[in-house]
């Protein structure tokens, strides 16, 4: 019988992919693990139980990260969809589309430095609203470019058809355009959520340490050489994207396929 290497190679690949995640979980459960010990001296839920205490501020960071990312994702997706339609019908649509790439020309930190003067003047420095607006400036052009492929002559024909059947603009969106773009809307929501969730440069400058999202927290713990809390915050950081990925796989990709 011929021996097939395929299952072994595949298993090895899966192990290599899963190892960093398993290691993160192990690290989050450990404390006092020093070289050359093979295993940590303590494995338990001590670190996890501290999430609920105000000492680490992880629960607050998790909540504010969730608030910021959900706000950015919802506002960017909806406004990106609506404004991409206006751009598609605009006579200078190519120029407007080109402008949407502008925030990506600069590195986020440089971009934040450019924005900081205006944010300071408007009193948006160091608060959650300021971070939401700053991240929106990055996520919105992404959504705009993402939806530009949705609009075409056929969609215009659908819109015209609804109008001649007696539908107003609101009915066109609710009964036709949103259902047609449902899959894309969910994917865009997922992507803009991730952009916001893992954003560091803009958040650290506009938030000036007062707005501590989970991503900022991870870097703080790593700077302090507190790997156990760093791993714990990483686990929290991964949790919402995994939930979103699950929903996307179950409800979106299945339908798109």
């Amino acid at each position: 019988m011929k021996l097939s290497w395929k299952p072994f190679v595949l298993s090895l690949a899966v192990l290599l992919i899963l190892f960093p995640f398993a290691y993160l979980v192990l690290l989050s459960l450990a404390s006092d693990w020093r070289f050359p010990d093979l295993f940590p001296s303590y494995i338990g839920l001590k670190n996890w139980s501290k999430i609920l205490s105000s000492e680490t501020g992880l629960l607050t960071s998790f909540a504010s990260s969730l608030l910021i990312s959900l706000s950015v994702a919802i506002v960017s997706t909806v406004s990106g969809f609506l404004i991409s339609r206006a751009v598609f019908y605009h006579p200078k649509k190519n120029t407007l589309t080109l402008l949407a790439y502008f925030p990506y020309i600069l590195a986020p930190v440089v971009f934040a430095a450019c924005l900081s003067f205006f944010f300071l003047k408007m009193g948006l420095f160091g608060n959650v609203m300021g971070v939401i607006i700053a991240q929106f400036i990055i996520a919105f052009p992404y959504a705009l470019l993402f939806f530009s492929s949705f609009w075409n002559k056929k969609v215009k024909s659908y819109e015209d058809l609804v109008a001649t059947l007696g539908g107003n603009r609101w009915q066109t969106y609710i009964k036709v355009l949103f259902p047609l773009a449902k899959g894309l809307l969910l994917i865009c929501f997922f992507q803009t959520f991730l952009i916001s969730w893992f954003e560091y440069g803009l958040t650290s400058i506009i938030g000036i340490g007062k707005v501590q999202t989970l991503t900022i927290k991870v870097f703080l713990f790593i700077k302090e050489a507190n790997y156990y809390y760093g791993a714990l915050s990483c686990c929290l950081l991964i949790f919402p994207p995994i939930v979103l990925l699950y929903f996307n796989k179950r409800y979106v990709f299945k339908k798109l396929a």
Binding site: K154, S157, Y158, D160, L161, A163, T164, L165, G166, G167, N168, K175, V176, P179, L180, K182
Partner: peptide
């Protein structure tokens, strides 16, 4: 156009892909 009560039919049938035949007619 929505106030004229004039319906424009295209060469393409333009059925709404998320609705069945009944719902397309009822639209």
């Amino acid at each position: 156009p929505e106030k004229r009560n004039i319906v424009y039919l295209y060469q393409e049938d333009l059925l709404f892909p998320h609705l069945n035949a009944f719902e397309n007619i009822a639209f």
